[in-house]
Design a binder for these strands. Structure first.
Lengths: 350, 350
DNA sequence: ATCGTATTTGTTAGCGATAACAAAATTCAA
DNA sequence: TTGAATTTTGTTATCGCTAACAAATACGAT
């Protein structure tokens, strides 16, 4: 009776059982337990059942940290994204998760807050977990961050951009080109006085690339003046988009169209126009970037550049799985660059 | 010269250096390196510098899996949220991350997809990593999932709901009460024929609670009829919100106000009304839930229930830090329930 | 029955770090 | 200058698991 009590207490808050406890209870060696708990290969069915029963009885859960130390496989994939609150990057993370599903690999997520310094810190702390591969956003890193990635000895994928000098693999697209395509579209629709609304700094490199693409195509199309409103720290919010469009129309009342650095700011701009009774696209055409759900749903629906964000993550994930497999077989896969499609999606706002 | 080449090669793709390599290079024992790399306490400054130099030279990065095996501290916090694509939960994750900042703890995120079965799988796979604490969303779990949590021997926090029978700690609010408050608000504004728009199943337990709160207060206020449109698998999208409101007005043309299960569906409904020329709130008032950025920005701005999602995460994180500290000192903190404020935010849409 | 092959299980060693204790070096006071 | 107190460093023994190899058992064919 007293013994029974003690036992119960132990289950609730006692020491966590180890594989040895399971092995003893099942009357086998730990090695057999280890095998049974993973592939179940080379295990007599009845032994496996006995082990399972012991596992259930003890409430045993495998300790992977111990396992990875021995097997040299942590089962971690590290991924760094600028922000979890941006649905584009959340979609990429989701795509990654989906790609990894069933592979037994765990995603370790980190948020850089659009800062390369924070990224460097994160790279190091991720590397301490010995991930089997790493996904980073963009091609801009600190010197040390880059070196850490290069020396990590694991597959690396840079996403969302096309870095001039990639570390290894790349899954992305040219934000500048995508932005240019949007300018061209507006130009073909007859707009000549086209403006760009974005954040105040270049911290968000993809935003900066989009602005650069805008500037480049303004020049190429022979349009005289570039009209850029910089407002708010990137990533700029919906509300800031609204304030920015007001400024834009104050500064250049003759402006005909505005490209916003993202759909969120475009939406904010659009709603502010509504509020003030400025007709869109009659008074001013508005375009965004990213094809967020909101752009398709709102009225008028927002013209945007569609990028398959989840696909970036998914393709990066699949590429990593291949690369990891390659490393294991000592047959490293060659450096690969996967281009992600984007396309201008004309809607009601332009 | 040849030696130099070899050395360089080794740095690029050679075996990853261990603490022993650092120790040898610095002429000390691994224990000294270990100490230098963590607190730096009880280390002669010159020794520490020597070690730092060796670390830099070798590009050494600490292996935490090995460390945690020995120290029995993994530095992981596991968190399960329904979806990363929902900004409410993303905010909670962000709050958690913020709370953990500087503590050296790593967030291990998992997505349950609003499914308790997936949650159970995730709980187990998280537990394999031996997290020092765990955050889950809601109080609904499978039997085995709950047992796993109870027996894990670590602090557990359930968030976003007020479970009837909590496992340990809780940081949340009553979704039913919050929903009731919104009904009451509409009632006070003079609305009598109030409808609810939500998903088709109860998979999203918070959504189900909101509906239950709606039903309860309809009865309490003595309103004759409850009008519920169930449309789409939760979480329902903006677009589905739009389709739902059309159905609502077909089925009950006399309806005066609609509460949507979230701001996203409310926004979709609102935009569909725009598109069809139905004036909001004149023809129909629309309210949402969650105070997403979109609700404040769009025109007309959406009446909603504001919940500080990031604060849920932040408070859960801080509570966990305390609890972990308590466990370490063998002085477990008592079970705690932290209530999160919510409030009805009246805006232009009602 | 006997040997060879295939299947199942066990043994030993070690993954890379840290805890706990022990020893050496340094500091300081009288 | 000497011994005690303090600071700094080292030694040894795990942590819980899995790789690699070895042994035992089962199965089949002749």
């Amino acid at each position: 009776m007293a013994r029974g009590d003690k036992k119960k207490l132990e289950i609730v808050r006692g020491p966590v059982p180890t594989m040895l406890d399971v092995a003893n209870l099942a009357g086998v060696s730990t090695m057999t337990v280890s095998r049974a708990l993973r592939d179940g290969s080379s295990i007599a069915p009845q032994t496996r059942d006995r082990i399972r029963k012991a596992v259930d009885q003890l409430g045993y859960v495998l300790d992977q940290s111990a396992g990875s130390l021995s097997s040299k496989r942590t089962g971690f994939i590290a991924a760094l994204i600028p922000s979890i609150n941006n649905s584009n990057f959340a979609d990429t993370a989701r795509g990654l998760t989906d790609a990894l599903e069933g592979s037994g690999l765990q995603l370790l997520l980190g948020y850089t807050d659009y800062s390369v310094e924070k990224e460097e810190v994160l790279i190091e702390s991720m590397l301490k977990r010995r991930p089997e591969a790493m996904v980073v956003t963009g091609g801009a890193h600190t010197l040390r961050g880059r070196k850490l990635l290069e020396n990590a000895g694991i597959p690396i994928v840079e996403t969302w951009d096309l870095p001039r000098k990639p570390i290894q693999h790349v899954v992305g697209f040219s934000n500048a080109d995508a932005s240019s395509a949007l300018v061209k579209h507006l130009f073909e629709q007859g707009h000549r006085k086209i403006a760009f609304i974005g954040g105040t700094t270049n911290r968000d490199t993809r935003g900066a690339d989009r602005r650069a693409g805008y500037e480049a195509s303004i020049r190429k199309l022979g349009l005289k003046e570039s009209r850029v409103i910089s407002f708010g720290t990137p990533p700029i919010t919906m509300k800031q988009g609204g304030e920015a469009i007001v400024r834009l129309l104050e500064q250049w009342p003759d402006v005909e169209a505005a490209i916003c650095v993202s759909d969120l700011s475009a939406f904010g701009a659009l709603m502010e126009c509504h509020r003030r009774g400025w007709k869109v696209p009659k008074r001013i055409a508005i375009a965004g970037f990213g094809d967020f759900e909101i752009a398709a749903t709102c009225f008028p629906a927002i013209t945007t550049v569609g990028v398959n964000c989840a696909d970036i993550g998914f393709k990066a994930g699949k590429l990593l799985l291949q690369a990891i497999e390659g490393e294991r077989l000592d047959r490293p896969v060659p450096q690969e660059t996967i281009l992600i499609d984007y396309k201008v999606i004309p809607r009601e706002s332009t």
